[in-house]
């Protein structure tokens, strides 16, 4: 997906307003409106080793349940850039938004994921305002579905097919509500949701001698 405007008019995929990152072959989606912090959280996840799918929109293939992202750099405000500890010199001023810096995934040290990815988690992000530590709790599939439908760009074109795709997605993923303010701590909370890769033991275990 290269142009959101043309995709909305033409795509057979369900287009969702969402940030998305990848780890261990699973996509994590952050659906939500502009201003909720999708780009900042996406960038924080990249700093923590996730692959970059998008900070703006994903296309969900109704047949496979896999997503691809809108290909564009991450758009970060100066506040987000500072909060993430990124060097502003790594970004360039965005053509799309005058008050944002554009960062490629590579400039943050992350890899760009362009192939379709199965969705493992949907995280509904909410700025807590008061909490110092992020809180992440499971939510029911119905709440995920409502958020996915609300985040859709083109459900009006796809009609029933959009509803079926969103409902299928909602039952196949784990849904979470994340209350957080500090983006890197929020990324750490998301990281803990995912299975950690087992490291090979550094020393061989010797069999105990028979008694």
């Amino acid at each position: 997906m290269h142009s959101l405007a043309s995709a909305i008019e033409e795509s057979a995929d369900l287009l969702l307003h969402a940030g998305a990152v990848e780890r261990a072959g699973q996509a994590v989606l952050f659906p939500g409106e502009s201003g909720v912090g999708k780009s900042t959280l996406t960038a924080a996840c990249l700093i923590r080793g996730f692959g970059y799918i998008t900070d703006e929109a994903v296309a969900l293939d109704p047949d496979t349940g896999r997503v691809t992202g809108l290909a564009r750099p991450l758009m970060l405000t100066p506040w987000s850039t500072e909060a993430l500890g990124l060097d502003p010199a790594l970004g360039g001023w965005s053509d799309e938004s005058a008050d944002k810096l554009a960062f490629t995934a590579q400039s943050i040290g992350a890899r760009a994921v362009t192939e379709p990815v199965a969705v493992g988690h949907v995280v509904l992000v909410r700025r807590s305002g008061a909490r110092s530590n992020p809180v992440i709790e499971p939510v029911a599939a119905g709440e995920v579905l409502a958020a996915v439908l609300a985040a859709s760009f083109n459900h009006y074109r796809l009609g029933e097919r959009a509803w079926e795709a969103a409902a299928r997605l909602s039952t196949q993923v784990q849904g979470w509500r994340l209350d957080a303010d500090e983006p890197v701590a929020a990324a750490d909370a998301i990281l803990r949701l995912l299975p950690q890769r087992l490291e090979a033991p550094t020393t061989a275990v010797e069999a105990s001698p028979a008694l």
């Binding site: 599939a141 119905g142 009609g159 969103a166 409902a167 909602s170």
Partner: peptide, 16 residues
């Protein structure tokens, strides 16, 4: 029905 909640689609108005 998804995990105990009902979701509806109204074909006439294309509303979910």
């Amino acid at each position: 029905e998804i995990d105990g909640d009902i979701t509806l689609f109204h074909a006439a108005t294309q509303t979910a």
